[in-house]
Computed example of a mutant assay.
Amino acid sequence: MTARRTVLLTGASGVVGRSILRESGPSGPRIIPAAHSSPVPEAQEPPLALDMTADRFGLDADGYAALAAEVDVVIHSAGLTEWGLPAERYEPINIEGTRRVAEFAERAGATVHFMSTAFVAALAPDAPVPLSEGNVCVNYIRSKHRAEHLLRDSGLPHTVFRPTNLIGDSRTGWTSRGQIVQLMSDWLARGRAPFIPVHPGIRMDFVPQDLLSQAVLRAIELGDDEGEFWVTYGEEAMDTETCLEVLAKHVAGRGRSLTLPPLVDADTLDPDVLARTPPMTRSYLSVLRDVSEVTRCSGGVLPTSMPELRERYGVARVDDTAAYLAGLEYAAEHLG
């Protein structure tokens, strides 16, 4: 019988961290949750107040050594995920924090499972078009890309999981807090968009958070210590038109109607048209355009490891449109 593993989960209070804790049953690994300050209601033991930006996570030498002696595996989920910030804002947690995790894992003799982003596909050398310097996501993506290289260069046993934009639990729509998909969907559902800038042919690739959690926990169970996994739907992902149809169905289910805004080719959008919209509208439209650009730079369809994740890790086969609708319903009821 394999010994029960002890896992240090960084970013335990975040969307991914709390989802992993919900998915981990009593027969799963022992998870030591680490969070800088926020509560972690799903945790089975009190969270450790670790500072990923500090030497030894802010612990004294004895405490750090004691933690390293306990831990077999690190799930590194801590990070700054907000878009649109200067590059230097991502450095302390996304890059130096990953460096400190690598130092800890070397001390502990632990495998690292790193939560990156599928958006790094836009930085591939063979990307069909380069990502623009003004893209709202570019500095965030580069920080995750650098963190991946840092782990690769460390020589440590590790895996990299690259999820696309996450939505709520596939069964219930639950999420610990709203993210970009919920925010943008709510804005669109209120009929605020005069048009939607999008690159023709791209996929709207949203993945339920529990699928990512299932994959990571199964990798730990199997003792996997290498691999790169794109947690996306790829060619299976819905197109823009289908996404809007799901949104209209959600709105209709709440007793309202939604006139779907026209789609406008983001490449041919006149900048003056965007500039004439109100500031809040311009901000939302710019984000829609930039996220579309990220997918366009990835070839219009994100790389996917979903077939392998289903076969090797038993990740559930979930219809993305049904999961998106469930997430919309949960957000409307609980996230306000």
Rank of each mutant, 00 (worst) to 15 (best):
I95M: 05
C297L: 12
E333T: 09
S38R: 15
F229E: 00
Q209D: 14
L274R: 05
L150C: 06
W174T: 01
P29C: 13
H113K: 07
G327W: 01
R18N: 06
L156I: 06
Y324A: 03
H158T: 03
V7A: 15
D60S: 08
L258F: 10
V318P: 01
G168E: 02
R30M: 08
G178K: 01
D186E: 14
L335T: 05
E70L: 13
P262R: 06
A105S: 13
V287L: 08
W230A: 12
D272S: 10
E245S: 11
G173T: 00
Y140G: 13
G97T: 08
A331Y: 00
T295E: 10
P125W: 06
L211C: 07
T259L: 00
D126M: 00
A124Q: 12
V138E: 12
F206H: 06
A219R: 09
L244T: 05
D319Q: 01
L188D: 05
P46K: 03
S116E: 06
Y313C: 04
R99M: 02
T175E: 00
P279Q: 04
D224W: 03
A331S: 06
L188F: 11
V318N: 00
G327E: 01
S37N: 09
P41M: 07
G336N: 11
S143E: 11
E293W: 06
M238C: 08
D210H: 04
D267C: 01
E91R: 15
T81Y: 07
R192M: 11
L131M: 11
G134A: 13
